[in-house]
């Protein structure tokens, strides 16, 4: 008897498109900011009040340029994507331009992020 089921990898193929990727990134970036801000606030408290070693260690991580690249990516993405969500929620008739809005958002994100990172790398190379 021949196998009637369609066995294959089609089912797991990613079909959500740009907006779904944006939604997943929004969740992840939101949680990441809560984690980052929460730890930062607590470590600032220990730094300020006790000059603690653990707080110094955490600050060293936070001050590393690679960590800053990640933080800037996450915060900038969450803020821009959040603005898109807010605008589309306030004017629901615009929802039909959802895909275009997502593209526009990346069109703003890429140069803003790219320029920031470039300037930071140049400063780093100058020993700034």
């Amino acid at each position: 008897m021949a196998l009637k089921r369609n066995v294959g990898l089609k089912g797991i193929k990613y079909r959500g498109g740009g907006p779904m990727l944006a939604w997943a990134l929004h969740r992840i970036s939101g949680l990441a900011i809560v984690l980052f801000v929460g730890l930062h606030v607590i470590s600032s408290f220990f730094m300020q009040q006790l000059g603690s070693d653990i707080a110094t260690a955490l600050n060293t991580v936070y001050e590393s340029i690679y960590f800053q690249f990640i933080v800037i990516f996450i915060v900038l993405f969450h803020a821009l994507n959040g603005l898109r969500v807010i605008i589309l929620d306030l004017w629901p008739q615009l929802i039909k331009f959802q895909r275009e809005a997502t593209w526009l958002q990346w069109l703003i994100f890429i140069p803003t992020y790219g320029m920031t990172v470039t300037i930071m790398i140049l400063n780093q190379l100058q020993g700034g």
Binding site: R27, G30, L31, I33, V34, V37
Partner: peptide, 8 residues
């Protein structure tokens, strides 16, 4: 942020 954590 904390409300976002609650929603998730």
């Amino acid at each position: 942020g904390m409300n976002g954590v609650r929603v998730i």
